[in-house]
Design a protein around this nucleic acid. Structure first.
Lengths: 235, 235
DNA sequence: GCAAAAGTGTTAATCTTACACCCATGT
DNA sequence: ACATGGGTGTAAGATTAACACTTTTGC
């Protein structure tokens, strides 16, 4: 950053820098959010996003991954920066800005014990409790971003198990967009992209007949991007 | 933010928080960026984005607007947060994170003297010099964001004078998307949105015949949003 | 009168939407 | 045999893309 002459006469003070994580999961056809019961004062016992101060010796993204690891036991998950919240009075105690980062996790992989130890709970996205500070705003913004990104980037797959069925994928997109999609059109479109690899296995958990499992094919996705780029699922 | 038990044993240290502004303008058919010659050590004399430390008693957005005001004299311009840059070693001197914010300004309105006093220069977006630290990365990211946003939100108009012609608007979009657009299709699409108000005046600076001036109509835009929302210019 | 930019319509191709029935299987 | 979700095709409508000529006017 550059500072101009006038800045030199201003006080340059440091401030606290935190990061809060918006952790999305998808389970039983519902989009869910991982929320914690705060263990420290002030506002002990209130619901809150998991977060931490950023250490002097770690990148912002490292701090986000550390929080995620500490609270879910998960490594190597999709994570992206959302926005930085920096209203001067957002934290009543002291001046503290927070970089919100959102994560998409495969809910079947997370460490349930670890999560419970931390007093955590998965809430359905449209039945969230009141969260501390500006955390509800963060979740709202993250959901908007998720909707936006899911449309043009294949991030939806980060929320599903490695192997998934087309109906599962559709339910995920319906949960993200918060509206129904036509099953014939959805299937047509998603298959036309050529980024799904059909497996020989079936998943019978959803029906008696069973639905074929598919895998996301990153190589074909890269090809798609090169060949003019138009990944777009539903809308 | 929440901190977990383990955090309580970690050092909670404050850090410097800065903001850097990516200021876009549009002039002579080219998308431009306002860049400054750094006046303080280290890296004095190098090109840099305008920036400042964030004061303890101001919101992040206030800090951005302050920088903008100090460097261009402009108030009340479109400004939005881009991303926060927080690699631990991004500033060689001390740990400092920077919230990048981008602004779209009507280049005809800015205070040229003020800008020159600060050793500033407008560079064409594809002929930028090397900037300090991670500033080139910031610009790259801001340009991506601008491309993305211009497609679905009417932010392009922030870069034009209040009154503008259709060919001017088209050149702007061509500069943002960095590709040619078909003039007949562009005109058809943009007029079909019903958000432009045709004036009786002509602008003759671009041609002998002159082109009709138009104004962006915010009320109609609000109507468009309510009635199902599909603002989309070109692609 | 000519150069230079403004303005105008049509058609083919593509993509999106709406919609209804048969299939496979566990009970 | 029936209930349940999985899987398939088609036609109408909307949108996009490609494309060429006339208009105005300052020089």
């Amino acid at each position: 950053m550059t500072y101009t002459n006038t800045d030199l006469y201003k006080v340059k003070e440091k401030m606290y820098v935190a990061t809060d994580c918006i952790i999305f999961g998808f389970d039983s056809g519902k989009l869910k959010l991982l929320v914690f019961k705060r263990k420290v004062s002030p506002l002990e016992g209130e619901w809150s996003l998991p977060g931490s101060f950023v250490q002097l010796d770690e990148d912002l993204s490292e701090a986000g991954r550390r929080v995620l690891k500490e609270t879910t036991g998960l490594d190597n998950v999709f994570m992206d920066q959302l926005k930085t919240y920096g209203k001067k009075d957002r934290d009543p105690g002291y001046r503290c800005i927070s970089i919100a980062q959102y994560a998409l996790i495969r809910i079947d992989e997370y460490d349930e014990k670890l999560v419970e130890e931390h007093g955590a709970h998965w809430f359905e996205i449209d039945h969230l409790p009141i969260l501390i500070f500006d955390h509800n705003e963060m979740v709202h913004d993250a959901l908007m971003q998720l909707k936006q990104n899911a449309r043009y980037k294949p991030i939806g797959f980060e929320l599903l198990p490695e192997k998934f069925t087309i109906p599962q994928l559709q339910k995920l997109y319906e949960a993200i967009y918060q509206r129904q999609l036509d099953d014939r059109n959805f299937r047509k479109k998603v298959l036309s992209l050529n980024v799904l690899e059909k497996l020989d296995e079936k998943d019978k958990s959803g029906s008696k007949r069973g639905a074929f499992l598919h895998k996301f094919n990153y190589k074909n996705y890269q090809k798609l991007l090169k060949s003019g780029y138009n990944f777009e699922i539903a809308g």
